[in-house]
Design a protein around this nucleic acid. Structure first.
Lengths: 240, 240
DNA sequence: TAGATTGTTAATCGATTAACAATC
DNA sequence: TAGATTGTTAATCGATTAACAATC
């Protein structure tokens, strides 16, 4: 994609790797701010709670980027990860549902980053429609499909109550949205071309409740929860 | 635990199973509201996006609860899942950080459910301290440790900026908190007896960005993300 | 009985980790 | 050169899925 520079034909990365690349990115940004030019898999592992072997495996999937005996160049891998996420392509995201969570996400600095930008906001409540949230005037549900289409938005965030989720997603998809983060605890019926990530915040506390009830303890304090992979996700998640 | 009724000595369940039990619970509640008394692994699977074989496997770990040829009794498995999560034991949760996300969680009906209750709120900003959020007066950071101790709270939610996370977690742990959901994108240094779940909301959108960039499409629209879970995590997560 | 659906085994898949040769 | 650290292989672990006998 850039001349004089090999453009790796990155094959489909494992979901777990993609999830971790985001973590690495953050640590790399910290290192860059601290004017550190080099980082080892060991350091990256210590800052993310990941096994260094796993870090190397993840990074090696992006190409041969490290230098034996030295480590990785901070700028090089940061740029490579940005490339994988295509952060330079601006992506318009619409948000449906401006209750507490929707507002929090729209206002937060961290949710929309890396090339994502809020393009429009929608809500079903007449009390909310017409108000301004984070610089955007909230529009009614009837406007979802035409607006999404007009904006060419491909990404949607669903922060509506579960009963409203199916209707909302249909409006989004009709307008052309193909990638959705769904915070409503409800399985959505969508065409198989539409990619949905399900995020369920209440499950995290419940999981801790289980761990306490069992009197179990983690031995190492590691890693991340996609908030969802977590399991993933943790988490069984869409993709592949 | 209850007389005349076998108390299964549920062994440590796989993390992925625990995450799914929460999903099942929700579908069961829906069925109960609809006065349905029976549910099959197939129906439960259709409503959660899980494979029916996996549903049966999960449920069989809780004991022999189903009836061949018929399915599962809605009330029985709902009660059994509640038992696993020990939802009848009230659990006090304190929240540190009342920015957009902290407020959203405290006000939301769905985050604190099933035996969890907000016990106290804390923030470092003088402008926020003293204000009332969802019926609780926000207290300063200096009060975290003594208040947690006085309340006997064992659970904490961290919704502070990453720079403030380590200080906050130390105050929580000193007061006796042992189970933490951390929304700050920062790995916490804690004793190994403390269980931390990491939730990273921005990773979900990033993952979708990756999928779009690759031009990939999911074939089936399935399941959940612990919000991180998707692995849970999706998502490498703490526990075991 | 015939049909339905569980409980469980075996096969598969994907992800993590340890170990070490390659090499800076 | 000696020390450090990558890239990669092989071993392990955990989770999913298909298949089917057991049984209501």
């Amino acid at each position: 994609m850039t001349e004089g520079w090999q453009s790796y034909r990155t094959e489909k990365l494992p979901e777990a790797t993609v999830l971790r690349l985001g973590l690495y990115q953050r640590v790399l940004a910290e290192f860059a701010r601290a004017r550190r030019t080099t980082i080892s898999s060991d350091e990256l592992g210590r800052h993310t709670g990941e096994n260094p072997a796993n870090v190397r495996k993840d990074l090696s999937r992006l190409g041969t980027l490290g230098t034996r005996g030295t480590g990785y160049d901070v700028g090089t891998i940061a740029a490579r990860i940005d490339e994988v996420f295509a952060t330079s392509t601006p992506r318009r995201v619409v948000v449906v549902g401006l209750g507490n969570l929707g507002r929090a996400l729209v206002r937060s600095r961290s949710f929309f980053q890396q090339g994502f930008e809020v393009a429009a906001l929608f809500d079903s409540s007449p009390a909310v429609v017409g108000t301004t949230v984070a610089g955007h005037v909230v529009q009614p549900m009837e406007s979802v499909t035409p607006e999404v289409e007009a904006l060419g938005a491909r990404f949607g965030v669903l922060t509506v109550p579960p009963e409203a989720a199916q209707d909302a997603v249909e409006r989004l998809v009709r307008g052309g949205v193909g990638y959705i983060v769904n915070f409503a605890p409800k399985l959505l019926q969508v065409e198989t071309t539409v990619v949905v990530r399900y995020v369920d915040l209440s499950i995290e506390l419940q999981m801790l409740g289980y761990v306490e009830a069992q009197g179990l303890r983690s031995t190492t304090s590691s890693s991340i929860g996609s908030s969802g992979r977590q399991l993933g996700s943790p988490s069984a998640e869409v993709l592949s």
